[in-house]
Write a protein that binds this DNA or RNA. Sequence first.
DNA 1: TAGATTGTTAATCGATTAACAATC
DNA 2: TAGATTGTTAATCGATTAACAATC
Lengths: 213, 213
Amino acid sequence: MSSKSTVSISVIRRLPRYYRFLGELKREGINRISSRELSERMGLTASQIRQDLNCFGGFGQQGYGYNVVSLHEEIAHILGLDLHHNAVLIGVGNLGKAVATLDFEHSGFHLCGAFDHAPGVVGSSLVGMTVLHTDTLEAFCETHRPTTALLCVPRTAADALSKRLILCGVKAFLNFSHYDIALHNDDVIVENVHLMDSLMTLGYRMNEKRKMD
Amino acid sequence: MSSKSTVSISVIRRLPRYYRFLGELKREGINRISSRELSERMGLTASQIRQDLNCFGGFGQQGYGYNVVSLHEEIAHILGLDLHHNAVLIGVGNLGKAVATLDFEHSGFHLCGAFDHAPGVVGSSLVGMTVLHTDTLEAFCETHRPTTALLCVPRTAADALSKRLILCGVKAFLNFSHYDIALHNDDVIVENVHLMDSLMTLGYRMNEKRKMD
DNA sequence: TAGATTGTTAATCGATTAACAATC
DNA sequence: TAGATTGTTAATCGATTAACAATC
């Protein structure tokens, strides 16, 4: 029945995946699972699963295992999926549109606005919202007070826009640009998603594998 | 002048970022940099930079530092950015379209085909290519022999499509779906990009920070 | 030569795995 | 009760940081 004061980011990054697998088990109608069974499904060690979960509390029962439904709920609660941080989408290109269609209601966020500056895009409709002009960003933030920005703009636009957003009170970014927000702004939380980096890493691994064979 | 036999994935995942920063320095006209200066720009320790680079060889010079242009080129070579793995894009939704517009020519890949099954999408044009029907996937692979798939389809389609692609000789995936390709297929290289996981992690970190203040 | 900075070894820190006593 | 499986401590492994001799 422990519960660590601060949990390492490695553990945190595994939580969404646990959540996903437990959701799957739930759908399959399985209501009890041991760390060993789960480890085989997920390709982890049972030890790691028990260690990870025990960072947050003793969710299992000796001799039995874990209750799928309640563990699923516990992880949802740990991740704060029941909360709703207001988020704005910045940049409604193809990537922005893809991000807009994520299942926000089960993510801990609420998408409250979308912005772009391209004439054809501003005024268009996106998941039930009208895309606004970035010129109106400050006015919008004044009333809606978003704490999060989903930054789907090119690197060149990211610097100025992130600064404006921070002035508007935005505290966290999901950053798709190659601009290093965290580096220039202390005290702001940034999760980077760099598609090009992932692609390059994939290429490296392919080349290494080829050398081996 | 070392050069480790196998380099850890943590180091590899930092390489694209080094590459990016060196490109920036190059554009700024800076042709010499010490590990300390670079560490300050990147928010790392100088020690880590020297350790990382020395996994691949001694690229620096004592008393001088590193030559920006040649280090940039060395990293490009290490990542294999000069190679061209044939890649197919599977799924031409918003995400697929965003992926299609990545700068492939400087990534180590060549995009040779795009596939979807939606009537409105098949036959449309995408970065100079005509989107083909997934029914023609096997025939296409027979002639073009792609080794990589950029999988931009929903989870429900990912299982069947990844199996077909593997039968076609695809060895590596950039996987955006929530389906665990690597788990079901040994010997295939997978880089996962899970937008929802990143979003959930961001939310957790926001909640933690709020507790602290 | 003297100063600077690397390459590399050693020390530290953190994360994963193994082991097992507690207990359902 | 006996068997199973957790929670948790200890051992191992790997990654990061610090230190410094080598050398440009």
